[in-house]
Design a protein around this nucleic acid. Structure first.
Lengths: 203, 203
DNA sequence: GATCACCCTATACCTAGGTTTAGGGTGGCC
DNA sequence: GGCCACCCTAAACCTAGGTATAGGGTGATC
């Protein structure tokens, strides 16, 4: 199975066929569907790396589908292709973050360029998501106290001040702090500050 | 003078007139021009907070102007209005970061909404730019050594390690480090780490 | 040649961070 | 009841960070 799979959803069988062969000819993995429903029914499609959607589709439109994915927090890059586009439709798609919006007929190279860009963005996104998930997992291993202390440390407060804030002794803070640093995998305070920022922690 | 001024560039005098009165009626400052050249010749226009551009203009087109501003690093929010738009034009504008792209005739409220959004983005942008400029000014007051040490400190290296890297004694590092923290206005290491990150400093 | 800014170093001293070891208290769970 | 995880604390000890004071060296500038 290819490392990245392009999902094509278009109700025109000949378009599906030609996109499929175009993308395979440059070594990409492809899965083509006639409708959003068909795609959703096929659970082998989980490895989607980028979507190529016709704006108008039987059932749910490409635009609605894009919005729905976005609401679910699934930010897979989307490329639109369409035979009958108007300006408001284009604006809506681009505002929602579409990578490209191409009118049929388009040049093969334009689509391939857009897909390259989409795949690059997807890789970045996946990397960022993986890193964040990793941090969240580590955060989840903290005890209540450790979790409470972390943002205060990241805000630059002294152990003394943290102790005052929490109404405990400074030495207790040191113990929790050390344990927290170990669990988070932060070798230095600088590391921890960046972790807290990525986790949007506020003191 | 209003705190925020909307710049309108449209070659149709009646459109300029009607936009001017629409925007003034809701209390906005407006300056209207018939062409990009006219705007650039008027140096009182420096306080631009957002641009409302016709895509097609005599001389330089709105799209070209947007691109030119972007290349110069002037990221003023742009709203396009046009009577004769096509999809590629729309895509280009939105990819370049346009806030909105409206076809004439448009509803007044749609334009006002877009302008509100543009002004909000402009404020954010200005705030961020001001903060960054402030940091850069402080960075500029550092001596060569202090500047050299800053990213190493922000990377979490110990004074000992920095001393080794630079081939000087640990105490020398301490002195430069203290001076650097003072000049940068960083009260804690956590502050400094965030500053270095905002300045995209890499050790 | 005097002045200035910068760089390096050192001693001394103080504060802050961090670990280990050792203990006591609480509440949930088998 | 025994076990466990968590919370709090303490003494002892070590490392790291930070400042003040003091001095020497270099290169640019006037």
């Amino acid at each position: 199975m290819p490392t990245s799979t392009v999902i094509v959803i278009d109700d025109d069988p000949s378009m599906r066929e030609s996109l499929d062969s175009l993308l395979r000819s440059v070594g990409m993995g492809v899965a083509a569907y006639a409708s959003v429903q068909d795609f959703l029914n096929d659970r082998t499609a989980d490895c989607a790396s980028c979507l190529v959607l016709d704006v108008r589709l039987p059932g749910q439109s490409g635009l609605d589908f894009q919005e729905q994915l976005s609401r679910k927090g699934l930010h897979v890059p989307v490329i639109f292709i369409t035979g009958h586009a108007d300006v408001p439709m284009t604006v809506r798609a681009m505002k929602a973050g579409a990578v490209e919006f191409l009118e049929k007929p388009f040049r093969d190279q334009d689509l391939l360029d857009a897909i390259q860009l989409a795949l690059a963005r997807n890789r970045e996104r996946l990397d960022a998501e993986t890193a964040l998930k990793d941090l969240q997992d580590r955060l989840a291993t903290l005890t209540a106290r450790e979790r409470q202390i972390m943002p205060l440390v990241a805000a630059g407060l002294l152990n003394k001040q943290i102790a005052g804030d929490l109404g405990v002794s400074e030495i207790t803070v040191k113990v929790h702090r050390g344990q927290m640093m170990r669990k988070m995998g932060a070798k230095t305070l600088a590391d921890l500050v960046r972790m807290a920022d990525k986790l949007s922690m506020k003191a």
